[in-house]
């Protein structure tokens, strides 16, 4: 009797806490969605900001964020995946490898502002790229590089060793084994990781603060040496340092919703991809 009661109480409390929590979190989303939907319109998505950012649209910020996302991935994805393959498939366990793993893991967890600091000092100042899409993309790229390496390695680790061995036993070379057996199986997970890091890149503010983001620049970038607006920084500006914070509130809600939708799209596609392939390849 006694233990039944304590169980009921404990689980009851857990249930309430969990629902409370998920309720609060859902409320945040709902709040942004409801307020944001009022602000979003075709014009909002396709016009330049105007009237001290209290009206008009956020087109340059959307385009800027897409440029940065694309730029950073173009740089980080190939190097990251290729390094991941090399580390997992070629490099033997050794002190060097453990050291490398320690360094990459460490880098993967460093606060993004530190990358901002680094990017500004190196790309903007020392290499003289100035505040530019190039500097911003490289900074963001460096930030996700260790994440991509780690995801790649983890994805390839999930490929059972017995398949590699079987492939070698049939006379396949290491490269053939990697490209015909390991990668086809591991790739969906690598791609899932890629999509998630694209989501992360598009939402980061700290690394672009001093490397590319423009406070107000109502034109689309034309080269990689241009500065550009970007969604997360735009939201930050609208909320904390706009010319008229009250009047730009609706713009802020709209921008926040666009950001959330972007993340949502990335998350959903990553999940779909993962589900589709995990059904196809059942590995024991």
């Amino acid at each position: 009797m006694n233990k039944k009661v304590s169980e009921a109480i404990a689980f009851g409390i857990f249930r309430v806490l969990s629902f409370l929590l998920v309720g609060v979190l859902a409320l945040i989303l709902l709040f942004i969605i409801v307020r944001g939907v009022e602000a979003i319109s075709w014009d909002f998505l396709t016009k330049m900001p105007s009237d001290g950012m209290t009206s008009g649209g956020i087109l340059p910020a959307i385009v800027g964020t897409l440029c940065l996302m694309f730029g950073s991935i173009v740089f980080a994805f190939p190097i990251g995946v290729l390094s991941g393959i090399y580390l997992n498939e070629y490099l033997k366990e050794s002190k060097l490898k453990r050291f490398l793993r320690l360094m990459t893991n460490n880098l993967a967890g460093i606060p993004s502002i530190v990358f901002g600091l680094f990017g500004m000092a190196l790309f903007v100042n020392k290499l003289n790229f100035g505040d530019s899409i190039l500097a911003g993309s490289l900074t963001l790229g460096l930030m996700v590089l260790p994440v991509i390496i780690r995801t790649t390695e983890e994805a390839l680790k999930m490929v059972p060793n017995s398949l590699r061995v079987a492939s070698y036993a049939l006379g396949a070379t290491r490269l053939q084994t990697v490209f015909r057996i390991v990668l086809p199986i591991g790739m969906p997970n690598v791609l899932t990781g890629l999509i998630l890091s694209m989501g992360r890149v598009s939402g980061e503010t700290a690394p672009i603060l001093f490397t590319v983001a423009a406070y107000f620049l109502p034109k689309l970038p034309t080269s990689i040496f241009d500065q550009t607006m970007a969604l997360p920084y735009h939201l930050y500006v609208l909320v904390t340092s706009g010319t008229n914070i009250e009047a730009s509130r609706p713009m802020a809600y709209g921008t926040a919703l666009v950001l959330v939708i972007m993340v949502l799209i990335f998350n959903l596609s990553a999940n779909l991809l993962r589900r589709k392939f995990s059904k196809k390849v059942k590995l024991k």
Binding site: I28, R200, Y233, Y236, L264, N267
Partner: peptide, 13 residues
């Protein structure tokens, strides 16, 4: 999903 939402959005909220 919530872990993917950008920190500025949380800051805004």
């Amino acid at each position: 999903l919530l872990s993917g939402i950008p920190s500025v959005v949380y800051g805004f909220f």
